[in-house]
Design a protein around this nucleic acid. Structure first.
Lengths: 109, 109
DNA sequence: GAACTATTTGGCAGTTTAGCCAAATAGTTG
DNA sequence: CAACTATTTGGCTAAACTGCCAAATAGTTC
């Protein structure tokens, strides 16, 4: 019985906020295949390298990715692989939207 | 091989953005126990009823909750229960932060 | 239909975010 | 150390988000 907004909600929402951008989801999808340097990612995303860097910083700040420096390059990798499983659930959103409204709804106690 | 930002990324990010707010996570947690009317939720959240209503609209727009009118009241319910499972994964983020850095990292191919 | 309850909508001020450029930093190489 | 490459940081503008209030809407009840 939480009945209040707790720190838990705040820290979790921070992660979701980090996931709430198309470019960052793309970056995560790419990182799920293995670590990549910023320069590789920039080539895939149509954006300034500073923009890509900031997206990655934000993901790192949220704890979703980690980075590793090797020479001049910085390699980012997915630190919490389980986030990739979220997508299966999200596709349910779309399926539910398509074949609408026959869904389960808990009755009031 | 996606190699591009697709509509998929956009629609998914919309859902994550909707989850990216402490109050909305609280609302979802409450709705996971059964449907609730706006007035009930307002009593739990320290915010104007119009603010609560807007949070709920946003969640509905993202496809995460649905609403049902009964007399004067509008009852909201969780449409995609699987989002509640996300939290288990998110707690991994914190655990990983605590017992730092011994994590798995895919080597480059 | 007037008074009332529950909810949504519009609008506004303050804050945050996105993306670009320029400049700074870090590391490599001649 | 000068020139170069890779990345980050600071600053700026435009856009989006938050939360409150006031007003509008929807439905109920007398």
């Amino acid at each position: 019985m939480p009945s209040q907004i707790r720190g838990e909600h705040r820290s979790r929402s921070k992660v979701f906020k980090a996931l709430g951008h198309p470019t960052r989801l793309f970056l995560l999808e790419e990182l799920s295949r293995g670590e990549r340097c910023v320069c590789e990612l920039r080539d895939m995303v149509h954006a300034d390298i500073s923009t890509v860097s900031k997206h990655l910083s934000l993901l790192k700040e949220a704890g979703v990715v980690s980075d590793r420096k090797e020479g001049l390059k910085v390699f980012y990798s997915l630190r919490i692989p389980c986030v990739m499983k979220f997508f299966d659930c999200l596709d349910e959103v779309e399926r539910a939207s398509a074949s609408c409204c026959a869904s389960s709804r808990k009755p009031r106690p």
